[in-house]
Design a protein around this nucleic acid. Structure first.
Lengths: 346, 346
DNA sequence: TATTTTTACGCAAACGTTCCCGACATCGAT
DNA sequence: ATCGATGTCGGGAACGTTTGCGTAAAAATA
């Protein structure tokens, strides 16, 4: 009991017409008489004919589908970005295919290969934290597969990129901590070679420098799995407190890292902000429900997804090869809540 | 500059062999000499040959891909369930395609059609809150497309289903509120015709009944969009407090509904649990960070995804039509925290 | 009426693959 | 030397669609 949709051939047979005539009638070609067209159209409607997209893909070598590769969807930033992507793709006639790399380089390469061979028309990518080289993207990109990077990007491939202003977001957060009176500010971030980590670290450093606070390498802790694994975050947090200088604030860079850091602090019995203040990059909409309400750097995730998709579709639909690439930088939003406010009693 | 992968035909031409021979050599057919096989295999490896999955789909009418339809991925339950689905699908050789209905019936029908015509081998579905009739599924299902429902299921289609024990989960939560001393317990739930809503409402009623508390229709509020829209939840919460009898606890049924309800309570200035206690279905792992820490009914989302996928793949790979269908019911977990504990001062 | 143009349609190739069937060598057995 | 068996391989159809080209009949023109 196989699933057998009606084909153009079936229609032709039923109506005593050739497949080419039916095909042309369906697309309203001028060289088909109006009676025949009407006949075909009505019969097709009646039989609920749907063109087989697979056959079309085979023939036209395109799909009207976009591949999305992110580390994980259980991440507020990415699920919001995906909604932005869908909102554009959907009414431009594109379908999206989502895959998760789970921060694994191997998995990412498999996914990329799979998507390419399934003829997605283009790729929207935020690279995994395990990715240190980009040949799997480069090969396909050079063969003509359009790719737009967002969030976690790479300078190794010259294409459109869409990111938040990570430098400024980090700068603002750190400056806020400093002007609130915190002195020893640790920085908890993702894998060190990721673009977001580098940019946010620079913003953090710049803010310290502006206020003549010496940068201390040991106050920076990296989560090489992007915060996916609880243990790595817990260890990083513990490392921060091992430091002889008493840390009084933490700036976290990353959705999962921020929330997991707070979980760890709870577990360690650290009071926020009395023992340690926290502000971090996260797009959770539950931050105000936390105890205490969490100060955050919020990224315009939805918009980032939208812009990236528009750029990708423009690449796909461009007749001539695109040579002028841009990197769009969208602004972050600093939301101050209690977790980063110095308590008056101290 | 189109993206042109190497085909079996290219190999044949380069090696002076027919496509059939190359095809057979690649699959290691016994009727090809070992030298030819070696020749072909080595050349294919060198040229990085990858079979074109689209051509295979066209020919074999299958894909090795599973379609997932959920209302939204920015929902802890579903993102966890998807991870469960992927964990099984991935090492059974299936690829997954995720689409969001955004709780819209129209969108759901479009997605279903699209997935079916793209020849997914089967569907994993949690229906949208806007879905009141199931013809779009039924048509395909009767034509032989395997479908497994999870979470939000329907009795109208006789197939495998995987759900949490919603009745018991709701019963336990409600009973817990009662035995903690709460008297007027409201119930905030999703669209009324959804299976999850019905089952959870029954559990709620049963617990009330066990303790001889009269069921009051007006204490039940429905969010017809499943809690996706902030305003509908806010209105529902306000309605609860309009009731003359003073509500002292709320049992919420649904991930988004629970979190949004708490946001609304904050906004309304209601203290939890002093003014109103809260316990709800949600799979967020941030519940303990809330103020106060939130009591929850947690569903085994990951496992539900796994089981549903195993059942679906068994249907797909079954030689004979499957006639024996089962509904797997997995147990929920009650996690008591402060949001549902009566304060001693009261 | 003879010729050209138009109208309306069919044939067949192509996209990449698999697989049924047939073809041809080689070889051992008769 | 002939025969059947065996081992290797190619031809071609099929999956569903589009499209260039060819062509018959009908209409328009001379």
């Amino acid at each position: 009991m196989k699933f057998e949709p009606v084909t153009i051939k079936d229609i032709g047979k039923a109506l005593g017409l050739s497949t080419s005539t039916v095909s042309r009638a369906l697309r309203g070609s001028y060289e088909i008489s109006s009676e025949t067209k009407k006949l075909v159209l009505e019969y097709a409607e009646k039989m609920n004919y749907r063109p087989n997209p697979i056959a079309l893909s085979l023939k036209e070598r395109r799909n009207h589908s976009l591949g999305i590769i992110v580390c994980e969807i259980a991440n507020n930033f990415f699920s919001q970005a995906i909604n932005g992507i869908e909102s554009i793709a959907y009414n431009r006639g594109y379908h999206v295919i989502i895959s998760q790399s789970h921060e694994s380089f191997e998995r990412e390469t498999v996914i990329v290969d799979h998507m390419a061979s399934r003829s997605v028309d283009g790729l929207l990518v935020s690279v995994s934290s395990g990715t240190k080289e980009y040949d799997h993207f480069k090969n396909l990109y050079e063969k003509g597969l359009p790719i737009v990077f967002f969030d976690r990007v790479t300078s190794e491939i010259n294409t459109h990129k869409v990111i938040a202003d990570n430098f400024k977001g980090a700068f603002d957060a750190t400056e806020h901590l400093i002007t609130s009176g915190f002195k020893r500010i640790a920085h908890l971030t993702s894998a060190p070679y990721l673009s977001i980590s580098i940019e946010r670290l620079e913003g953090y450093k710049a803010a310290l420098s502006k206020y003549n606070i010496e940068f201390d390498e040991k106050l920076v802790q990296y989560c090489h799995n992007g915060g996916m694994i609880y243990e790595e975050v817990e260890e990083a947090v513990k490392n921060i407190f091992k430091h002889k200088a008493k840390v009084d604030a933490i700036f976290t860079a990353g959705d999962r890292i921020t929330t997991t850091c707070i979980q760890t602090l709870h577990k360690l019995g650290k009071k926020i902000p009395e023992d340690v203040a926290v502000i971090g990059f996260t797009n959770t909409n539950l931050a105000e429900l936390f105890h205490p309400p969490l100060s955050v750097v919020r990224q315009p995730a939805f918009e980032i997804g939208q812009v990236a998709t528009e750029l990708l579709i423009s690449m796909i639909e461009s007749k001539r090869p695109v040579v002028d690439f841009e990197t769009r930088v969208l602004q972050t939003e600093l939301v101050i809540r209690e977790s980063s406010i110095k308590t008056s009693t101290t």
